[in-house]
Amino acid sequence: MNDILLKTAFILYLASGIFFCAPLFFRSNIWDEIARLLLKTGFILHSVMVGVRWYEAGRPPFASMYEALILFAWAVILVYLIFELAYRVRFLAIPVNILALIFLSVALPSDSTIKALVPALQSRWMSVHVITYFVGYGALSIAFVLSAIYLLSANQKRLDQLRLGTLDEITYRLIIFGFPFLTIGMTTGSIWANSAWGSYWNWDPKETCSLITWLVYAVYLHARLLKGWKHKRAAYLSLLGFLVTLFTFVGVNFILPGLHSYS
């Protein structure tokens, strides 16, 4: 059932992406509306899938790369829906759709067996630590895509200053939305580490890289709020921040073994 739910959600996201591209060829608002409806229906099925897997596994479904990628895609769409509701930034739907499809394309062919949890992972802190991190990652990944679009458009002079300014502003808002979640994720992880290993900080590579990620975004916020860094310089920092995030999320597991080797 889980597999069917996820595949259906993937197909709906894919169909939504196709309908989002339709206005390039046909002039009508209906395509956009259909695309959004498909995206939202896909998100509901995606959420149900996460809930069903949680129930089946008898634990939060965040213990393998398969589960993490599914959660990542879910968080990206969740952040988009919150931003659409708050700021009516409907243009975000396309990059968000692409991001979700990328994450799910990697997740779908990977090993989906429900893994048993090692004792250290059996903690009530797991849910809050992982969910807050992924909501943060979701916001920062959309900020990354917007920064990339900003830099490409600014360099090729494809967008006017007003639209570039909007991109810059929304990127900033995504980062100030994601940063507190990143902080909650890091601090709850530290409290959890203390109850599992007797030490709240071990300079384990995953911990250290998560601190680096936090520091890079702290630089972004200080530079923007106190030094007036905006536009290109801010976009480059946002790119760097997400590259470090990606390294912390995936790279560390393969390159730098440590206490978090199971994640």
Partner: peptide, 15 residues
């Protein structure tokens, strides 16, 4: 800001 970058670099080397 300088200290932020120095801590980032030090942490990266340590990691």
């Amino acid at each position: 800001l300088t200290l932020f970058w120095l801590v980032i670099i030090a942490c990266f080397i340590g990691a």
